[in-house]
């Protein structure tokens, strides 16, 4: 009984965290993009730096008319945003926020994360197909083409921490990096840990469909890609999942390469683990925003080129090198 209650509480807590994070991240992204372009960003709504702006926008989206195009495939069209959201939310189950703060410490947690986050693309493909709109379909097909490109280097570079720690459980992966920042995986087996971290980080930018890899929704050529026909609450769901996904990939990078909830130095242990975890994740979220407002969008073939010709061979060699390192050195 108590266990069930705790599970429900954790679920509710996670969902509210996702909502709050999405609201914060949209506001933060607006501010970061504005500051990088010497602008101010939202300033009016809510007083201090326009902090209420995204909440007002969310309310606006929720109050909008629910429009489904007449020739759309209605059941799929309605279902798609929820599949995208569920795929993103599912990953939160195994992300360790703290030493005792994890939804489910699966012994194949890493594998589970890769599997469940790929579900997002099915939702996107559904959205693009059911919209019955050429832009949506283009966006969805590009998304499908993108996933086969970035998912392989992501898988290979996520295997590096697994090889170093000898486990697939997210919690054990964090525990294996405890004791100081020099134990973190991105500094292990130098430079291969760092290389895996960089490749994972870059490929995860493609996973969350952000600039420079935002070709599935490139607004200058595809209107809004798979989300073209969506409006109101369903569009808000896509937006929410996009930012939740942004947190997921950053959290995974923080967990696997930056020591998760463990403190960087032993005497800093008095600060609770979840705070360290959120700090590290937010730093990576900021990195993603920084990249987005720096780089132009890649062409489809350039994305394929980067993923297949650069990330893939390097991550293969990297995995091999780390394996031999662990065999002979570590």
């Amino acid at each position: 009984m108590l266990a069930t209650l705790l599970t429900v509480a954790y679920l509710v807590g996670t969902i509210s965290f996702v909502f709050l994070f999405a609201l914060f991240a949209v506001w933060f992204e607006r501010k970061v993009s504005a500051w990088m372009q010497d602008r101010l960003g939202p300033m009016e709504t809510g007083g201090f730096q326009g902090w209420l702006q995204t909440i007002a926008d969310a309310v606006k989206l929720l109050l909008k008319e629910d429009i489904v195009p007449g020739k759309a495939d209605h059941p799929l069209f309605r279902l798609a945003p929820y599949i995208v959201f569920v795929g993103t939310l599912g990953a939160f189950a195994v992300i360790p926020f703290g030493a005792a703060l994890v939804g489910s410490d699966l012994n194949i947690g890493l594998y589970y994360v890769i599997a469940i986050s790929s579900l997002v693309v099915i939702g996107i493909l559904m959205a693009g197909w059911s919209s019955n709109n050429k832009w949506s379909l283009y966006g969805a097909m590009r998304s499908a083409a993108q996933i086969v490109s970035y998912e392989v280097p992501i898988g290979l570079s996520l295997l590096v921490p697994a090889v170093i720690a000898g486990t697939l459980s997210m919690q054990s992966l964090v525990v294996s990096q405890d004791g100081g920042f020099w134990n973190w995986n991105f500094l292990k087996a130098p430079p291969f840990g760092l290389l895996a971290f960089i490749i994972y980080f870059w490929a995860s930018v493609a996973e969350v469909n952000r600039v420079p890899f935002d070709i599935p929704e490139g607004e200058s050529e595809l209107v809004a890609g798979y989300a073209t026909e969506y409006s109101g609450m369903r569009y808000a769901m896509f937006f929410l999942s996009e930012y939740a996904n942004l947190f997921v990939v950053s959290a995974i990078a923080a967990t696997l390469f930056l020591g998760g909830w463990s403190a960087p130095l032993a005497f800093l242990k008095f600060i609770p683990g979840p705070i360290w975890f959120l700090l590290k994740s937010m730093a990576l979220v900021f990195m993603q925003m920084w990249l987005r407002w720096t780089l132009p969008r890649l062409r489809v073939d350039q994305l394929m080129g980067v993923c297949w010709k650069v990330f893939l061979p390097i991550s293969f060699v990297n995995l091999l090198a780390v394996s031999f390192w662990m065999l002979w050195v570590g």
Partner: peptide, 10 residues
């Protein structure tokens, strides 16, 4: 872009 992050807005 990081440099511009700290420049005062115009």
């Amino acid at each position: 872009t990081f440099g511009h992050l700290f420049k005062p807005a115009v």
